[in-house]
């Protein structure tokens, strides 16, 4: 059983939902990222989504784009991201690590090379934002052969027939994008998200994570009532932006704890 699935199963026993924070590798520096990853776990993260910096992150809002730009300024790209993951794994072999990135850096180093590096860093799942299922069949097949979960996004606009098709290729969990927009946007409509998640749940046993608009404990609490995981990204990156190295870990600790407590 995959580490991701095992984590969901364990949480279920104690009636908890998974908290999945997102940070970009190399933001604000490779050394800090490793400290941040450990801090996230200490503060209550059940899994971690690690962003691969990209020059043109089309599906992300300005906050995550700035994180990418800071990381790229420190020369952190796809290879360095996997080195950071490897360094994290030296101390932590329990917490599932999920990479989130765009297709071009993966294709640039080659899919086989990417998978080799993922294995050596013990990566559990990959979200490739701009690889919809119809363009990534061979890639998803290779992920599965390597026991890496292929995690797909579902949007508010994704039709039922398409959801069924995506479920066939997906593993680990499904990532429901809670609003029409980019990461870090405001104001999700809880009722609407609830209805959609209910609809998806009727089609699959895969756990469902919700992200793209979850910014505070109140929203997280409400969304956790009907989903299996909460993904929170831009809100944490805002803390990184607003902190210096002396108070960054403490500020991240506060926000993660405040959310973990209520879900």
């Amino acid at each position: 059983m995959s580490r991701i699935r095992k984590t969901f199963d364990t949480l279920k026993i104690s009636n908890q939902k998974a908290l999945i924070p997102f940070v970009t590798a190399g933001d604000p520096s490779p050394e800090m990222t490793i400290k941040i990853l450990h801090q996230l776990v200490t503060s209550g993260a059940d899994m971690i989504e690690l962003g691969i910096p990209f020059s043109d992150p089309m599906a992300d809002g300005p906050i995550i784009q700035r994180a990418s730009e800071r990381a790229l300024a420190k020369n952190v790209g796809i290879r360095k991201t996997l080195e950071i993951a490897k360094e994290f794994r030296k101390q932590n072999q329990v917490t599932p690590l999920i990479l989130m990135g765009y297709a071009n850096p993966i294709e640039a180093i080659g899919i086989d090379e990417f998978l080799k590096l993922c294995k050596s860093s013990d990566i559990d799942g990959v979200i490739t934002v701009d690889y919809p299922p119809e363009e990534s069949k061979a890639y998803v097949e290779k992920l599965k052969q390597n026991d890496i979960d292929a995690i797909f996004l579902l949007a508010p606009t994704t039709e039922k027939k398409r959801i069924e098709q995506i479920i066939k290729q997906a593993s680990g969990f499904l990532y429901y994008v809670s609003l029409k927009g980019v990461t870090g946007a405001q104001n999700i409509d809880i009722e609407q998200v609830k209805n959609r998640v209910g609809e998806i749940k009727s089609l699959t046993d895969l756990p469902i994570g919700v992200g793209f608009g979850v910014r505070d404990p109140e929203t997280a609490k409400n969304v956790a009532k009907f989903s299996d995981a909460i993904v929170i990204g831009s809100r944490i990156i805002q803390e990184i932006e607003a902190s210096d190295e002396s108070n960054m870990l403490e500020n991240i600790n506060k926000i993660i704890r405040s959310i973990k407590q209520v879900i």
């Binding site: 790209g77 796809i78 701009d130």
Partner: peptide, 21 residues
């Protein structure tokens, strides 16, 4: 230039060896 993926399509693309445009 190497072939890559940007703006929704695959094509020749000016990029570094790690796929940054």
């Amino acid at each position: 230039s190497p072939v890559g993926v940007l703006h929704g399509n695959r094509t020749y693309m000016m990029q570094n060896d790690e796929g940054q445009i």
